[in-house]
Design a binder for these strands. Sequence first.
DNA 1: TTTGTCAAGCGGAGAT
DNA 2: ATCTCCGCTTGACAAA
Length: 201
Amino acid sequence: MEEVKECNISLGLGLGSSEFLPTLKEYKQQIMFHLSFPPQMKEETDNEVQNFERFSSRTTDDEVENKINSSNVYSNKIHSNKTNKIAIRKKLVLTHEQVMMLEQNFRQHNVLTQTKKHDLADQLNLQPRQVEVWFQNRRARTKLKQREIDCEFWKTYCESLRDENRRLKIELQDLRSRKLGSSAYCVHLPLAMNPSYDKYE
DNA sequence: TTTGTCAAGCGGAGAT
DNA sequence: ATCTCCGCTTGACAAA
């Protein structure tokens, strides 16, 4: 079967050219037209497109079209290197209300149960998978943020240790320069600060 | 043009 | 075998 190495079709997409935005059906037609798939590949691609329709938060072509034409959803093509198939990915931008609701639920519990996932999906008019993905990405963002905080903490801590080390070295040098050799004094000094420390090394 | 953000894909790991 | 999670990555988009 003919292999599709590269898919780089212009479908007239672009911001500010909404009158040229194709419907999902037109997308399918144009993809087929441009690539002239062999029948088998056409079928596979069509299935793939259908999968993406199911996968997206919309179920009908009309709904897809409305979303494509609305302000918070854009469409683009993706090409899977693994399967050499073409599909359409609809880039979803969640609304403020959707994000607020998700955030609120995330604060209560950052892991989803099956029931919670489906409830939220229903409430937000999203697919359960999209809710799941949002939670996964949200956990990743939290973790990243925490890592940054930890990193900052250890950086500061490290800096303070360096300062302390510098200070102790100066103090040690000062003590040595005064040539304080009294054994009574030495007893109360930590080993490293003991003027006789060199003897132990 | 570069950089940051975010939804989503992919693959591996662990649990059931 | 299936599900869910995580880490990494991709591609679209917006902002700088």
